[in-house]
């Protein structure tokens, strides 16, 4: 079946199976490789995308479900100044090791920051509870986000 939606500011139309998962459509059909396949069951957040502005797990979404919706991945935020600042802080704080979790963290943290959800370091932790990182131990990620949100 044909599904149309907006991906990073562009209209896309893609032929999918009714039981196709958005994570697969993005990675395999639309070439968006920043969206990572982790647990495939909503637990790790590496597949995070923004759906109509909210972070969600693309591994739990049937692609036909996003008909008419707006989907944003890190590729769509490259020119955003707040996003660039966040990325720089990730780099400077050492919040990236293997980098597999990074796109997911960036999308969740960015949305929390621009929606003014972060007033304290606890808010950073609460916002990021759906993103797992196997490398950093989180401290540096939390610092990078706090630096961007609270400075």
């Amino acid at each position: 079946m044909l599904v149309k939606f907006r991906l990073n500011g562009k209209d896309v139309e893609v032929d999918v199976y009714p039981n196709e998962i958005l994570l697969d459509t993005l990675r395999l059909k639309l070439g968006v490789r920043s969206v990572k396949r982790g647990c495939e069951r909503g637990e790790c957040g590496t597949c995070t995308i923004l759906l109509n502005g909210s972070p969600v797990n693309s591994c739990l979404i049937l692609t036909p479900h996003v008909e008419g919706a707006e989907v944003i991945t890190v590729e769509g935020l490259e020119k955003d100044s707040k996003f660039k600042e966040l990325v720089n802080n990730f780099v400077n704080e050492g919040a990236i090791q293997c980098g597999f979790c990074t796109p997911g963290f960036l999308l969740t943290a960015y949305t929390a920051i621009i929606n003014q959800k972060i007033k304290t370091v606890d808010d950073v932790k609460k916002s990021l509870e759906g993103n797992l990182c196997r490398c950093t131990g989180y401290v540096k990620i939390i610092e990078a986000v706090a630096k961007t949100a609270l400075k």
């Binding site: 909503g42 972070p55 969600v56 759906g130």
Partner: peptide, 9 residues
């Protein structure tokens, strides 16, 4: 319940 990502859906 769940995570922010889950609560959004």
């Amino acid at each position: 319940l769940g995570s922010w990502q889950i609560r959004n859906m």
